[in-house]
Write a protein that binds this DNA or RNA. Structure first.
Length: 217
DNA sequence: GTCCAGGGCCTAC
DNA sequence: GTAGGCCATGGA
């Protein structure tokens, strides 16, 4: 398995080069993007983030102070806008109540206390928490998303419905616990998933086509 | 018009 | 503890 994961990484990186994933100018913007992208195409999230910037709402203090209606209006293109506006408010309140509104203070906490803390926030599940941990807080946590699951399952490496934590443990066990590696590897999985593994038939040009023979399954 | 996207919560068994 | 319904917009 270790060798297969390393080969997968090599195949993707030689195809795409460095992705520098995740896009975002600040840690807070990354956290907001992590909530907005829940079950949503990134192109729609970009529109919502552009609206938030336009309205100068992409700061914890501005966002928590704005009305739910105004927030909903700004993030409407990302879908589920009522739920997500509430989740953004809840996240901001969490930041102020526990960390003086500072992502930097949040990130200073050790991973062992930080992850349960994030998972305890309504609207933050495992993937959203790990997005925030890895990309906003620079913690060595591997993000599992639908692409990761789909790609590995399609190549016969895992059973598709393996639990989140079990799949994450697999990456933690077989790849070195390095922030930069985890960021890039997940970014490459996102690129590969978007480009080649979204629909079937898929993998004619897939960077992973030689990695496993089951690519066409 | 139809399908689907980088989840997570809630409810019912 | 888990399966199923629900949330919503925009692009293919």
């Amino acid at each position: 398995m270790k060798q297969q994961l390393e080969d997968m990484y090599k195949a993707m990186t030689s195809h795409y080069g460095p992705t520098h994933w995740w896009p975002g100018d600040t840690a807070f913007e990354i956290a907001v993007g992590a909530i907005l992208t829940q079950n949503t195409a990134w192109t729609n999230v970009e529109k919502a983030i552009a609206n938030l910037k336009q309205a100068d709402l992409l700061h914890p203090r501005r966002m928590v102070a704005t009305s739910l209606a105004e927030l909903e209006n700004a993030i409407r293109p990302s879908g589920y806008y009522r739920q997500k506006a509430e989740r953004l408010h809840i996240f901001c309140r969490f930041l102020f109540e526990n960390h003086r509104g500072s992502m930097k203070r949040l990130a200073a906490l050790p991973l062992e206390t930080l992850r349960p803390m994030l998972l305890n926030i309504k609207g933050v599940g495992p993937e959203t928490a790990d997005d925030i941990l890895l990309y906003a807080c620079e913690k060595p946590v591997f993000v599992i998303d639908a692409y990761t699951r789909r790609i590995l399952a399609r190549h016969g490496l895992i059973e598709e419905h393996i639990p989140y934590d079990a799949l994450q443990q697999l990456f933690h066990h077989y790849l070195p616990r390095q922030v930069a590696l985890y960021k890039e590897c997940h970014g490459l999985i996102v690129y590969t998933g978007k480009d080649y593994c979204r629909r079937r038939p898929a993998c004619a040009q897939c960077p992973l086509r030689n990695w496993a023979a089951q690519c066409q399954q």
